[in-house]
């Protein structure tokens, strides 16, 4: 698949086959749009969502990730999410270090 990109509010989405990259900020202003674009990209045996360049995630973003996990479970696929330190902070504050259906890996702060 050809590499494509789109800017969704303060968040940049880049995708090619089985790999999705998100960067920038995800909050209530753009979370629905990001979710709407990313959900159909969860396909094939393994999808990697690279969020190492995400510089802000709110609680609504945690819900979005949970729905990615639910989609992965229902499609019987593996979704690996590479979390930026910012995402890890929000996930921890919300109390969801793990989310069903997702394999989360956490980047160390630089």
């Amino acid at each position: 698949m050809e590499r494509q990109s789109e800017v969704l509010g303060g968040c940049e989405l880049v995708w090619a086959s089985a790999e999705v990259r998100l960067g920038g900020e995800i909050d209530s202003a753009n979370v629905s749009l990001v979710e709407q674009r990313v959900l159909p990209l969860i396909s094939g045996p393994v999808t990697v969502i690279d969020c190492r360049s995400v510089t802000f995630l709110d609680a609504g973003g945690v819900r979005m990730l949970a729905r990615f996990g639910a989609a992965a479970l229902s499609a019987n696929t593996v979704v690996r999410v590479r979390c930026s330190p910012w995402m890890t902070i929000t996930l921890e504050l919300c109390g969801f270090e793990e989310l069903p259906g997702l394999v989360l890996t956490h980047e160390e702060p630089s």
């Binding site: 609680a59 945690v62 990730l65 949970a66 504050l93 919300c94 109390g95 969801f96």
Partner: peptide
């Protein structure tokens, strides 16, 4: 009260934690 699942309200929980 901690959210039991992500669809539960959690904004104020997260704010109290932070």
């Amino acid at each position: 009260r901690p959210p039991k699942q992500p669809r539960d309200p959690m904004g104020l929980w997260a704010a109290r934690q932070a």
